[in-house]
Design a protein around this nucleic acid. Structure first.
Length: 504
RNA sequence: CGGGGCGUAGCGCAGCUUGGCUAGCGCGCCUGCUUUGGGAGCAGGAGGUCGGGAGUUCGAAUCUCCCCGCCCCGACCA
């Protein structure tokens, strides 16, 4: 017997959460570190998840009146310079293109030649280049609103990267809208946050808190930034999507102006909103366990893997024929407004090995089919989320597979919500707050803390305490009721509680 | 970008302190046979310019210098 490990992933979440995360991504074949510094290669299984995310989100954007378009990867440096806060926010992490030609170098290599008159920035986000176009497109109130989204890659020259969570290049969508009135733009900002929350909860099975960022956490150049915040299994917060109300900051900087009904020349009100491939990382950290990835069925690239089991050629042909009929039936079954996606894994690998591969990749359902099942016209079913295994009748399975997948989707959401709820609490005392966010083992911090709901006030003293504890204010929850209280850091009066947590 | 650690086969590592035969081990991979309902067994085999460059030396994975990359901790961030 080979060495039998208790879990498919080492270390476990408890032993070393960050390392566990990396190992899950590798074991599930989602992505790999690339030869290019800070950049990752997204592999087919990981890409399949992102494709599903794109498809669903794209449908939601269209349903709320948006259209897709595409703007250039390169942004003239002067564009970025127009909005002061914006420059300051992104300058440090910009990749800059300064040349447009390569020539043979003295040592046989290539050297850049043909210096550009004006350097080009590889977009870290596209407010400026899109705004420049909007300025041309908008002349009359009749041209508004403009509701455009683009799917694109962006580059932020990060010094410390982690697969999916923070890479130098990442993929995202960025919506950019321009409106005639402030109210309409604010409504758009809130609407898109709702879209993100809907997607997170109903497709990713990831509960989120909707809220507004504090001044310190705002997008550079925004009047207000809304976000959805999720709790990962190490109880840290992950910002999973943002929606910004940009006021007239960018339209003034970029001359996006128009004549209103009264013939007055006024500036447009703009918004921007985005989610990125970071959501794949969020998915991993929300649901997976010590045996690898667990996927919410609604975003899984495939739902059911059929594993044929046979000993000889005769059995092989019988079993495969049965499996083919089963897979065809499954692919006709309905799930989540589409079809169940099943396939037969007939690779020449031993059963146990093959089985574990699918466990690690998080395939929601595994179905073993061997001579014994055929004799009973049945299947042997294993579900990834609960590890439950049982034999059942083939027809019954085909009839109920959609419901089963729905049930798994719900179960994952409830499990994630339960984790968040049992690790969220109001804290009204600074000592309690410190204790909550201080690990028992300073050398190797164990999983600790969670979300704390506290009264607070704007004050440099608060910033310092939070910095020392490595805690951030995640958001001021939209759902919170007005509740006057006292800032636990300064004793100043507070209008309501904010969510505090350690964060990614 | 500051502090610390590490680069040896696809992955994980030993060897380095005290330079010396043909650079090893486990997993994985290939071939054959036996196997196959939860990570198979035996036998044989392939795979390395020891991260890169320069230096010291009769001789460098091992010593010196420079460079590159990765990981951890800070600062910054979707």
């Amino acid at each position: 017997m080979a060495e039998k490990r208790k879990t498919a992933i080492t270390p476990t979440r408890e032993q070393d959460y960050p390392e566990w995360y990396q190992q899950v991504i590798r074991a599930a074949e989602l992505a790999e570190i690339s030869p290019v510094r800070g950049c990752m290669v997204i592999k087919p299984w990981g890409w399949g998840i992102w494709e599903n995310m794109q498809r669903v989100l794209d449908g939601m954007f269209k349903a709320t009146g948006h259209e897709n378009a595409y703007f250039p990867l390169f942004i003239p440096m002067s564009f970025l310079e127009k909005e002061a806060e914006h420059v300051e926010g992104f300058a440090k992490e910009c990749a800059v293109v300064t040349h447009h030609r390569l020539e043979p170098g003295p040592d046989g290599g290539l050297v850049p030649a043909g210096r550009l008159e004006e350097p080009l920035i590889v977009r870290p986000t596209s407010e400026t280049i899109i705004g420049a176009m909007y300025a041309q497109w908008v002349q009359s109130y009749r041209d508004l609103p403009i509701l455009i989204n683009q799917w694109a890659n962006v580059v932020r020259w990060e010094l410390r990267t982690r697969l999916f969570l923070r890479t130098a290049e990442f993929l995202w969508q960025e919506g950019h809208t321009a409106h005639a009135t402030e109210q309409e733009a604010r409504e758009e900002t809130a609407l898109m946050l709702d879209v993100y929350a809907d997607f997170a909860e109903n497709w990713m099975a990831m509960p989120v808190i909707k809220g507004e960022k504090t001044a310190g956490e705002r997008f550079p150049g925004a009047i207000s930034t809304l976000s959805i915040e999720a709790m990962m299994q190490d109880r840290k917060a992950l910002q999973a999507g943002t929606s910004h109300f940009l006021g007239q900051n960018f339209s003034k900087a970029q001359e996006i102006k128009f004549q209103d009904q009264h013939g007055q020349e006024v500036y447009a009100w703009t918004t921007s909103w985005g989610v990125s491939t970071r959501l794949v990382g969020a998915l991993v950290m929300t649901h997976s366990d010590d045996d690898g990835l667990i996927l919410p069925p609604k975003l899984a690239p495939k739902h059911v893997v059929v594993l044929p089991i046979y000993r000889n050629d005769q059995e092989r042909s019988d079993v495969l024929a049965y499996c083919n009929r089963l897979a065809a039936q499954l692919n006709d079954a309905k799930f989540s407004g589409g079809a169940v996606h099943a396939w037969i894994d007939d690779r020449d690998l031993r059963g146990g090995e093959k089985n574990w591969q699918h466990i690690k990749k998080g395939v929601p359902l595994r179905v073993e089919v061997g001579p014994r099942d055929i004799a009973k016209n049945g299947v042997f079913l294993a579900r990834r989320d609960t590890s439950e295994k049982r034999g059942l009748d083939r027809e019954e399975f085909v009839q109920t597979v959609g419901n089963l997948l729905d049930d798994m989707q719900d179960g994952l959401y409830r499990r994630a919500l339960a984790l968040r709820e049992s690790n969220t609490r109001p804290i009204d005392d600074l000592d309690d707050f410190r204790q909550y966010f201080t690990p028992k083992n300073e050398e190797r911090p164990e999983i600790h803390g969670g979300f704390a709901l506290c009264h607070w006030a704007e004050d440099p003293a608060v910033d310092q305490i939070l910095k020392d504890l490595k805690v951030t204010i995640r958001c001021i929850p939209s759902a919170a009721e007005a509740e006057p209280g006292t800032c636990i850091f300064t004793g100043k009066p507070s209008a309501g509680r904010a969510v505090f947590a350690k964060a990614y």
